[in-house]
Simulated scan of single mutants.
Amino acid sequence: MAQAELLLDAKAALGEGPSWDERNGLLYWVDIDGKALHTYEVSSKQTSVVPLGKKIGAVVPRKSGGVVLVLEDGFYAYDPSGDGLTFLGNPEGRKPNTRFNDGKCDAAGRFWAGTMSMNGTANQGALYCLETDLTIRTIFENVSCSNGLAWSPDNRTMYYIDSPTRKVMAYDFDLESGEMSNPRVAVEVTEEGAVPDGMTSDAEGMIWVALWGGYGIRRWNPHTGELLLKIDVPAEQSSSCAFAGPNLDELYITSARVGISEANLLDQPLAGGLFLYKSDVKGQPTYAFGG
């Protein structure tokens, strides 16, 4: 089994959503319950924390500068050198007592992000898409915990996780229209106590999935369901991963401490940390929001 190394002992309550800003050499990630946006500059190893006052689900770079993110109450732009937070919109018909969770941009610059119930009620969430003209499209509803997103290198397949199903779904994807079709199961997680959380893909078309409750990352062939690699992370609640760095061969992994008892934290003191795994395979880039 491969081993991820601790990069930053952040002790995040609910670390999530890493994304790579290639233009500025910055890794972004979020602490949902800590209500903060984190940055890590890969070259200098400098870090910053921006408190936002609301739960933050995911963050992506923006082509025009700054970032776009989902807070608990909708889509926002954030420009640290300009206007700060700017509200972009909240989906119509969104169910009450839900919050945004994971999100990611496709190669056309659309920002896909989903929601989940804040009290654990099933089927209250949905998957949405913020188009580059800032309109918001509802993709589908009756989701329990909208989570990982990824695309194949040719952009013809989209992968999606609703965590409690313990499945990674694959869809035919039309990059030009942003339409998904033909759902099928790519991978089913069978490890006891573990559910699939955040996800990314690599240049070979394989998917890398963080296992919440599984102490690590798994690399699967989504065409065959074959498990190719296990990466051990010293944090039970491994939450998400993204390729970053100048060669896109560094896998950054987030984790969480929320819900772990003080006694159990003694066995995993690095929970909530940011971890790094040096990969032999290059990852897919983080695409920026195009609007």
Rank of each mutant, 00 (worst) to 15 (best):
E191N: 07
V281D: 05
E250Q: 14
N247A: 15
V209S: 02
P61E: 11
N119R: 09
G103H: 01
S279Q: 02
E192A: 14
A122L: 13
Y252L: 08
T138D: 14
P153I: 05
D172A: 14
L251D: 03
D33C: 12
A288Y: 00
I207A: 03
G273K: 03
M199S: 04
A36R: 01
G205K: 01
D133N: 08
T39C: 09
P91E: 08
V68E: 01
G84Q: 07
V233E: 02
Y28A: 09
G214Q: 06
S81T: 12
N97D: 13
F275D: 04
D106T: 03
L276Y: 06
D133K: 08
M199D: 09
G57Q: 00
I217A: 06
T98W: 00
G259F: 13
E41G: 14
A10G: 13
P222Y: 04
S117T: 08
E5I: 07
L7T: 05
E92H: 14
T135A: 11
I260L: 15
A4N: 01
G103V: 00
N147D: 13
V50Y: 05
D9C: 11
N142E: 15
G125E: 06
D33I: 12
R166V: 04
N142M: 13
I56P: 00
S181D: 10
P234H: 11
S48Y: 05
D280N: 15
P183M: 12
S43M: 12
V42P: 04
Q268D: 05
D9A: 14
E22G: 08
S44R: 08
L175G: 02
P18I: 00
M1S: 11
S261K: 14
E191T: 12
G291A: 09
D73Y: 07
R94P: 00
Y28M: 07
Y76G: 04
V281A: 07
D162P: 00
D249M: 01
G66S: 05
Y160Q: 03
F111Y: 11
G148E: 08
K45V: 02
T115N: 05
E191G: 02
S177L: 10
G93Q: 07
K104M: 05
I217V: 15
L265T: 11
V209E: 04
Y171I: 01
T165K: 05
G216M: 10
S279Y: 04
P222G: 06
R166H: 12
A150H: 01
L211F: 10
P246L: 14
L229P: 00
I56V: 15
S44C: 11
N221Q: 09
F87L: 09
A108L: 02
Y76C: 09
S181E: 06
N221G: 07
N247E: 15
E141P: 04
P183A: 11
G178N: 04
N264S: 15
M169W: 14
T165E: 00
L8A: 09
S239T: 15
I260P: 10
G283C: 04
F275C: 02
P61S: 10
R184C: 11
K45D: 09
G15H: 05
W20V: 09
R94I: 13
D197I: 03
Q237K: 15
K282Q: 15
G89D: 10
C129V: 13
A203R: 07
I207D: 03
D9S: 13
G148D: 11
G84I: 08
D33R: 15
G53W: 03
G193S: 09
F275H: 01
K45M: 10
K54P: 11
S43D: 12
W212S: 09
I136R: 09
S64W: 02
G57L: 01
